[in-house]
Computed example of a mutant assay.
Amino acid sequence: MSNKLVFITGGSGHVGFRTLVTALEAGYDVRAAVRSEFKKDLILSAPSIKALNPKDRLSFVIIPDLSAPGAYDAVLQGATYIIHIASPIVLKGDYDPSEYQSALIGPAVEGTTSILKAAAETDGIKRVVITSSIVAQIDPKYFFEVDRPENEVLDHTSRTSLSAGPYPTDFHAYNASKIAALAATETFVKTHDLSFDVTNIHPSFVTGKNELVTDVSDFTLGTNVTIMGSILGNKSDSPLVGASVHVNDVAYMHVKALSPEIPAGSYVGNSEGEKGTVWQDATRFAAKHFPQAVQAKVVPNDGTQPTRRLRIDVTREERVMGFVFMSFEEQVKSVVEHYLELKGGS
């Protein structure tokens, strides 16, 4: 992979950082776009990066606004591949409804189309890999309101249309941002004569150790809260779609998708096959693997989280990419172990 430069956006995020590390481990050189010097320093301070000691194999460009017109002008020169992960996310649920379009939907679409336009104007780009989501593939009512019919199975071909809103919550608006960005990507590919391939990766809820989270107070800001909620004693009556995937697997998919032997297209990331994730199992796995922490009440492990079933077929993904998704039990072990590390437990 020498002299194979990958340009990566979103490298300080949960998926982005692990993808950056995985790309370096695979032998690629990485140029990471970050919004600030702070984000750059955060990445460089991570133990995984220090252990790799990539030196000049890892470089950075500072782009404060990744959705700004011309944000990627000149910074793609010399790159062979692009992995576009950066996109607005919902962390604290504090968006005002009046901001949904300007803060979530608009930037998701503009950031994606901007990097595709820049790639089309840059010589030497062979493949662009974009982070989408399973929320871009099915009607939002199956996340928030009703179970999807038992005979319907989500796979890489599944798509849904964009609702014009208004959106009742910021997570509904986040769903809309992913639907809109995927539609914009596929329209761009159809309407342009491109010299490169485009692949979309569609993860379910991404869990697993986030090495850049170093303060336990920040631990439940991301999607790891889907696992930690019941372990920390939260009692929810609202079903959560039973679909999850380890961050290491998602990172592997992004990097593997750069390989010419992997056909371009869409790939879904999800563990446990069509059975899916049963969120309440998190408390059982925590008690199994961390009995002392549970007995000592370091974690209450007495919360509740009902599951809304969603059947997802990833047999094609595992066959084409040559791996098996890690189990939900492995995801729980990864997340709880990191939480206890930050708490100072064992």
Rank of each mutant, 00 (worst) to 15 (best):
D215K: 14
S67W: 09
I85P: 12
K39T: 05
R57Q: 11
Y167W: 09
Y142R: 05
P97G: 03
D29V: 00
I89D: 09
E25C: 07
S45A: 15
L24R: 07
I82G: 04
F325P: 07
F290H: 11
Y81D: 09
S204E: 09
I201H: 11
E186P: 02
D65Q: 11
T187N: 13
L58R: 10
Y267M: 12
F38W: 13
L342G: 04
E211W: 07
V255Y: 10
T304H: 13
T22Y: 11
I125A: 02
A176L: 01
E330N: 12
K55S: 07
H246F: 08
A136C: 05
Y339T: 06
G303V: 08
D193W: 00
N3F: 10
T19E: 08
L20I: 06
S236L: 14
G27I: 06
G322R: 06
G242E: 03
D170P: 00
Q292I: 05
A74W: 08
V146W: 01
I8A: 10
V135L: 00
L91T: 01
T187F: 01
E272W: 04
D193P: 00
V109Y: 04
D96Q: 10
T22I: 08
L91E: 05
K256E: 15
D281V: 00
P47C: 09
V268R: 13
T223F: 14
H14V: 02
H202G: 01
P97Y: 02
D313E: 07
G208P: 11
P64I: 03
Y81S: 06
V153H: 10
N3V: 08
